[in-house]
Design a protein around this nucleic acid. Structure first.
Length: 487
RNA sequence: GCGCCUCUAGCUCAAUUUGGCAGAGCAACGGACUCUUAAUCCGCAGGUUCUGGGUUCGAGUCCCAGGGGGCGUACCA
């Protein structure tokens, strides 16, 4: 690298030419962020004795004749490079680098006359060429399609995106740390399910050739995790991808990350305590506070969160009283007056849920636990101990979005069978989101499931909340898109 | 699924309102410059205007069909 041969003309940078003579490894002494932290405030004009090796992409270059400045960016930040024709080897080639080229640089930490913290280029090497031009250094990428399809570019030009995904990693780590501290054991259960179950959702179907059988990508890990509680794993959780063959929106991706946990000997009220402390704790861990700003509004996550029954919330936000006792006819009439489409065969529970979702939920900000869901629409949850027709089930609304779904688990195999059969009847009637009878799951219940509380948290939603992003696509690195018709 | 909007150079955007030779900044390429900060200055080059039809003397612009994307809506977390 000590020769001063001119930079290769760009025309010779044929994308098909892979014969760059670049090293197999590079010894880096510091991440850029470490240098910035250690030398912040270095006096203008000072050249230190500290020699560092850094690596990253050259994101900007300012040639100044016999002098050149560059901006090197790595995963931890940006720092200026200071090269001179007199002292920097291969100066001509250095000024011929393209924006986006990966380089390794060794040199003394210094501050320029203007006081900009820099690494003096005492030696450098090309690590990889950027054969394609990078986006505009100032405007970056604005087309969402390009940002998602070419996230590898977006991550370089969008600080917001990089920060959000760094925080996502911290959030998931904090969830694991806190659950581990509370004695929960992390497990991995099958993604390929012979029978789709655990949630009301249309599954993706796939095929195992050797077994000559259709398999379904899981819509939830629920039934396997509860089998594990039967198996004696008293506190168990899984963080994993689930798949639902449904629409895509700012809040929905066909594959998304779910945290599910099951806690033996606990009920839904224990789960509420756990949930509010878990979410507030993770916010504290990664945001430094239990108060966060979402979409310009404050969200106070400090426990305890408000707890209100579905009827209470409907009365507050829809402005009228409802009850399951009113019967299907009256509730259907309510739906009509609200402009909610109903289908024949819907029971009072489904009708009340519709009223809640259309007339009350959109007005909720939270955090609030909406409790006492109708048993009719909760095929896996235990009947309420004192309110006939209801289940010990709740969802949490935080920042106007459903964050979790939880309940005291249904443990009675006889009742579970009849709930499954009701689901199977819906399925037979054409509801492809209804569950099927899972005989093995019923058998496990016959061996005995102790009283158990369960929780499912949409991890992507939690990430959105704590990174203040409005679209799930900004919380997922590679959101599902239509296949690119032509690269 | 349905409705509305959108697609111009690698990137970010223009193109006189029913149509008249498709432009600029950045990047790239050539050059000048020893303290720049989106450096500056001079020069050069860059296009299947998403695709296919149609109307017209003439279409980036108007019409039809298709494709990608965004938003809303429906199903859902």
């Amino acid at each position: 690298m000590n020769d001063d041969t001119p930079a290769a003309p760009r025309e010779e940078a044929d994308p098909a030419d892979t014969r760059d003579d670049v090293p197999y490894r590079f010894d880096r002494s510091h991440a850029v962020g470490d240098i910035v932290e250690a030398f912040e405030g270095l006096e203008a004009g000072v050249e230190t004795e500290t020699v560092v090796s850094v690596a990253g992409r050259l994101m900007l270059r300012r040639d100044q004749g016999r002098l050149a400045f560059g901006t090197l960016q790595d995963a931890t930040g940006r720092i200026q490079l200071f090269a001179t024709a007199a002292a920097s080897p291969g100066f001509e080639r250095f000024t011929g680098l393209s924006i986006g080229d990966w380089i390794g640089v060794r040199g003394a930490v210094m501050a320029t006359r203007r006081g900009e913290l820099s690494v003096r280029v005492d030696d450098w090497t090309l690590l990889a060429r950027a054969r394609r031009p990078f986006p505009d250094k100032w405007h970056g990428l604005t087309d969402p399609d390009t940002r998602y399809r070419q996230r590898y570019v977006d991550l370089w030009v969008s600080d917001e995106a990089r920060d959000a995904f760094a925080r996502r990693s911290q959030i998931v780590a904090a969830l694991r740390r806190r659950l581990t501290d509370q004695g929960f054991v992390e497990v991995e259960t099958p993604v390929l399910h012979p029978i789709p179950g655990g949630a009301a959702a249309r599954p993706f179907v796939t095929r195992h050739e050797a077994l000559d059988a259709d398999l379904y990508l899981r819509v939830a890990p629920e039934l396997y995790l509860k089998r594990l509680v039967v198996g004696g794993m008293e506190r168990v959780y899984e963080i994993g991808r689930v798949f639902r063959n449904e629409g895509i929106s700012t809040r929905h991706n066909p594959e998304f990350t779910m945290l599910e946990l099951y806690w033996a000997y606990a009920d839904h009220t224990d789960i509420m305590d756990l949930t509010e402390h878990l979410v507030a704790g993770v916010a504290e861990d990664v945001c430094g506070s239990t108060t966060v700003v979402y979409d310009g509004q404050n969200v106070d996550l400090a426990p305890p969160w408000r707890r209100a029954s579905m009827e209470e919330v409907i009365a507050e936000h829809a402005g009228f009283e409802v009850s399951l006792d009113a019967g299907a006819a009256e509730l259907a009439a309510r739906c009509d007056s609200l402009g909610i489409e109903t289908r024949p065969g819907w029971g009072p529970g489904k009708l009340m849920l519709e009223i809640y979702e259309k007339a009350a939920e959109p007005n909720l900000w939270g955090p609030v636990f909406v409790t006492d869901y109708p048993a009719e629409v909760s095929p896996l949850s235990r009947r309420h101990r004192s309110r006939p027709g209801h289940a010990e089930r709740f969802e949490a609304i935080v920042a106007g979005r459903e964050l979790c779904n939880a309940f005291s688990e249904l443990v009675d195999p006889v009742e579970q069978r009849s709930r499954f059969e009701a689901q199977a009847a819906l399925r037979a009637a054409g509801d492809d989101e209804a569950m099927a009878v899972d005989e093995d799951y019923l058998r496990s219940l016959e061996y005995g499931l102790p009283p158990t509380g369960g929780l499912g948290i949409g991890v992507d939603r939690l990430v959105m909340l704590l990174t203040d992003t409005q679209a799930i696509r900004d919380a997922v690195l590679f959101p599902t898109l239509r296949p690119d018709p032509g690269v």
